[in-house]
Write a protein that binds this DNA or RNA. Sequence first.
RNA 1: GGACGAUUAGCUCAGUUGGUAGAGCAUCUCAUUUACACUGAGAGGGUCACAGGUUCGAGUCCUGUAUCGUCCACCA
Length: 716
Amino acid sequence: MELPSNYNSKEVEDKIYQLWEKSGFFAPEAHQPRAGNPNRNKTFCIIMPPTNANGNLHAGHALVMTIEDIMTRYKRMRGYKTLWLPGLDHAGFETQVVYEKKLEKEGKSRFKMAPEELYKEITGFTNENKKNITNQVKKMGASCDWSREQFTLDKNIIKIVYNTFEKLYKDNLIYRGKKIINWCTKHQTSLSDLETADVEKQDKFYYLKYGPFTIATARPETKFGDKYVVMHPKDKRYSDYTDGQKIDLEWINGPITATVIKDEAIDMDFGTGVMTITPWHDAVDFGIAERHNLEKEQIIDFYGKLLPIAGEFSGMKITEARPLIIDKLQAKGLVEKIEENYKHVVKTCYKCGSLIEPQIKEQWFLKMSAQGGSASGGKSLAKPAIDAIKSGKIKFIPEHYKKIALHWLNNIIDWNISRQIVWGIPIPAKTCEKCNEIFIDVEDKITSCKKCGGNLIKETDTFDTWFSSGQWPYAVLDYPKGKDFKTFYPTDIMETGGDLIFFWVSRMIMFSLYNTGKIPFKIVYLHGLVMDAKGQKMSKSKGNVINPLDLTDKFGTDALRIGLVVGNTPGTSLPLDENKIKAYRNFATKIWNASRFVLMNLEGYNENAKIAFTANDKKILGEFKKITKEITKEMDGLKFYVASEKIYHYFWHTFCDKIIEDYKKGGVSQQLLITILAESLKILHPFMPFITEEIYQQLPIKGKKDCLMIESWPVE
RNA sequence: GGACGAUUAGCUCAGUUGGUAGAGCAUCUCAUUUACACUGAGAGGGUCACAGGUUCGAGUCCUGUAUCGUCCACCA
């Protein structure tokens, strides 16, 4: 019984993963802990954040897979009925963006394709990626139950999403409204507020004469239709003007009649304290217009070009038109001054960086009031979520995310869930051409208006991808009647990136409480961002992206896994340094060689013989037991960064440096050596599953299991 | 404009109810073919960002300041 002199991670990993898959022990039903195990009637469940099926596994995924696998393997060994449920995400907008880039490279455009054709192509693209990403997840050693794998576009998921939509509509929490939304002119879709990124920009700031007033703006191209001039009701400088007063004045394309509006939204200290409003293309202005019932007019079309209202500038792109408009205003003597370096914040599309052009558009919205009960006129989505978090029913790790989540939920605004992209779940609604009556048609059966008999127009918008993934925890467990739902819900831990706290985590909490009446998970464990070795954010443009699969190739998956975990506290970003992974590759080699040494010294050893430890053995075992208890405590406290460091330290500097050396001098018994090795491998297993399993398979121990994966943890 | 986090050895980071500072990597010295050189034994290296306060005692608790980072926000 001897191990080869070198550990070949590549060969071993594939072989061992196959062994696990064949064993069937990834499924919770298969694993039967011994009769007396105190945890055997308890369950443990993690739902894997569905991986985007639009590319390759990145460093962040590697961390997710590692942490969740550690949690899963640990609980499985403790005897819990353990389920880690894997999934894949169609990732609506994100995938569409990736695919559009691909089309662009090929000189094609999605706008010249029929929607059905585009959908078919992206389906093919996604299917390829699904296989690819699944293999990469396996490469990380994930012990998830593949027989339960789910995809966000599976029929059963869509059905649940549709039912929720219908229920929300009946509860008056969904409405169709013509409101101002974030429009990405490049991708031709609206976006939620979370899908925009604020960017600081330097622009010219123009002071323009508007009748008796001077108004300041960075966007003169939106000003064509401005016919309301707004000031604060308490501004003494303008007390001569009254609300509703009409003023004739000369403007860009000729004389107009302006109306004075008094509104408290105006900051008296900013600019001149007076502004004109463009309700169609500015959220603040939209708000003012709504409050005062003012007319709204579209100036810029959905491609970012000026409409006929701009007269001679009609059809021009706004960026081209801006200087020309200023030239004209200057010629008319309407430009008072121009500030050169005006710093302000603009919204951009978080994916492509294009400037967001606010537009008014009819969209589907989800009501998101933080108030509950009758005060809000019915049910509230946010209120129960706030209560669950406040009361500690849902715990955050690290804790300070609790405040962040609550702050967002307390200030939540209605959520635009419509997207004008094909890659997503279609919104199951129809509108009557004649009377505008809306029908939610989950089964796609309604053919004419039930009210007036008119023709129905089928909705072409799709759902924001987070509308469906926000229902993931109960949808994948086959809510409401499924056996898994009854067994594993609420789940135990939601482990994901801190950047998803609003996008995903908060929405899962709201949807789950709304639908099931229960929280979706007890603990939210948020890991930090994986950075490059220098602590810089990885990005393709910087060229500092580290491919985790290169590291597994070079140093083995086990080395990458433990390297990602040791010293990595949740919530703080972690620099991924190849040298660190290399150091843990050395540790893997150490484990291998120590095991080789033990196996080479088995002469005369019989695992079935009666155990007779010496006094010194017992002392060492006592110390080991103490360490084991400490590690178990850290594991239960989800402090994997401490637990992994402790077992690392014990194995190398106590077991190898002291105990094995002692053995050479005859100080400890053969039995002790093999006992400590076997027990250490169990503790190391969640962190470094491949190498520990490979060695375990060769170990002569009493009552050996099919695999180390289902061995009992040293502390029950 | 708000909120949150960070600041500890050259580098990356731990430090769980307050009790004379820890790990890995790096550096230096020594050992020399050992299960393992992807090795062993040892060493050097820190006013714990700064200023106050509470305490017998503060890296840890409180207040303030600075720098960095992140998130949120409808100043045209």
